[in-house]
């Protein structure tokens, strides 16, 4: 039988607490990352997109684009609540519906302007390729007229 002294017990307890927090944070992070993809698929019913592209989009969206650190933290809480209650179940919470609408708009904009969606003849049937967020892409407006 292993005997632990008081100091060892406290150390193990602290380690377990830190581990729990990290695991929870990782879980929330994963959940919020997936939320971007869920909103995307919800906005584009029947979207044909490769799994790897979808994951890359989720990752890019959460890491790089449009979201400040505070927004990300706040989003993780919302995302966890959506995971538990569903989007409809949390929309009554003050501020949450606005945040989700804001994120939905950002998801749609980032996806459309960083994929080949607008170049496809029939984007509801053809596979849409996500090209990746590149802030240095010099001329990102496919509709602009120059001639």
């Amino acid at each position: 039988m292993i005997r632990l002294n008081r100091r060892q017990m406290m150390g193990l307890g602290a380690a377990a607490a830190v581990g729990g927090v990290l695991t929870g944070a990782w879980g929330l992070h994963r959940t919020s990352q997936r939320l971007a993809g869920e909103l995307l698929l919800d906005a584009f019913p029947g979207l044909q997109i490769e799994e790897a592209d979808l994951r890359q989009f989720e990752q890019d969206f959460m890491q790089a684009y449009w979201l400040t650190q505070m927004e990300r933290i706040s989003l993780r809480g919302i995302s966890a609540a959506v995971g538990l209650l569903g989007a409809g179940g949390v929309s009554w919470i003050p501020g949450v519906r606005g945040r989700l609408d804001h994120m939905r708009r950002a998801v749609i904009t980032v996806f459309l302007t960083n994929s080949d969606y607008f170049t496809l003849e029939n984007p509801t049937v053809d596979t849409v390729y996500y090209l990746g967020v590149d802030k240095n892409r010099p001329c990102g407006n496919p509709f602009a007229r120059f001639d």
Partner: peptide, 16 residues
């Protein structure tokens, strides 16, 4: 403005 700094529309197909 000729850029979508505030975002595109969210209604399907009416993005622009």
């Amino acid at each position: 403005e000729n850029h979508w700094g505030t975002g595109l529309r969210t209604e399907y197909g009416r993005w622009r």
